[in-house]
């Protein structure tokens, strides 16, 4: 029984991420919380990379660890944080109840996560150990030319038509392209409507955030009449 380097790294980073997440919750200074949350998000980016989701890993680091956390820290700079250093909620019956209920939730989630096996889920085929796709998933052309990458736009268009008209074709696509190509093929064919809806959502969020933050007065006391 030997642990591979990937396993050891998983345990190491998993431990660090859980400890950092706990400190996000229990550290009293919000700035420290934000920085620790950036640590957790970067580690999750590493996990995504390890899970062969390269584009998602990059987006995780750029969007979360970069943009969202910078937004948080910037908003904190607007506040007068001296009074914000408050302790965690006082010890009471309610606190005990909250902790117990979170323990139950944690137990259910961890138990479910630990028990899922390949046969346990009827609706999705999962192999709990890393296995190459069975030969039936491969296209004939892949077997002949396993590393062939299609960049010809005509062929790409054919694949898009194939995905939208035949759901089973998605499985075959999986073996043919690089990661990010596969992601974009699905995003801009099968999920194009949701993608457009998200752009509308972002517009609504922009307008809402500006409208909320734009009301009268600043975040600090200023002399009247300026």
């Amino acid at each position: 029984m030997e642990l591979t380097a990937a396993d050891i790294l998983f345990y190491l980073f998993g431990f660090v991420s859980v400890v950092s997440a706990l400190m996000v919750v229990f550290v009293s200074n919000p700035i420290y919380s934000a920085l620790l949350l950036a640590v957790v998000m970067s580690i999750l980016g590493i996990f995504f990379f390890n899970l062969e989701a390269h584009f998602i890993a990059a987006a995780q680091v750029v969007v979360y660890a970069g943009a969202v956390m910078v937004l948080f820290v910037m908003v904190m700079m607007l506040f007068d944080l001296k009074r914000e250093k408050e302790e965690v909620a006082r010890f009471s019956i309610l606190t005990v109840l909250k902790i117990i209920s979170v323990g139950v939730v944690c137990g259910v989630l961890v138990g479910a996560g630990a028990m899922i096996t390949g046969d346990g889920m009827g609706f999705i085929k999962v192999s709990t150990t890393e296995a190459p796709p069975p030969p039936s998933m491969l296209l004939k052309s892949d077997i002949n030319a396993p590393t062939k990458q299609t960049t010809n736009p005509e062929e790409l268009k054919d694949e898009v038509v194939e995905i939208t008209q035949n759901p089973q074709a998605g499985v075959e696509i999986f073996t043919k392209y690089t990661d990010t190509q596969k992601l974009s093929l699905k995003l801009f064919s099968k999920y194009i409507f949701i993608f457009e809806l998200l752009s509308v959502l972002l517009l609504v969020a922009i307008v809402g955030a500006v409208a909320l933050a734009r009301s009268k007065g600043g975040t600090h006391h200023v002399t009247r009449g300026s």
Binding site: G14, C106, V110, A112, G113
Partner: peptide, 12 residues
């Protein structure tokens, strides 16, 4: 399973 357990712990 390991990833799911870690995910559950972080969620909790």
């Amino acid at each position: 399973n390991h990833y799911l357990v870690l995910s559950g712990v972080l969620f909790s």
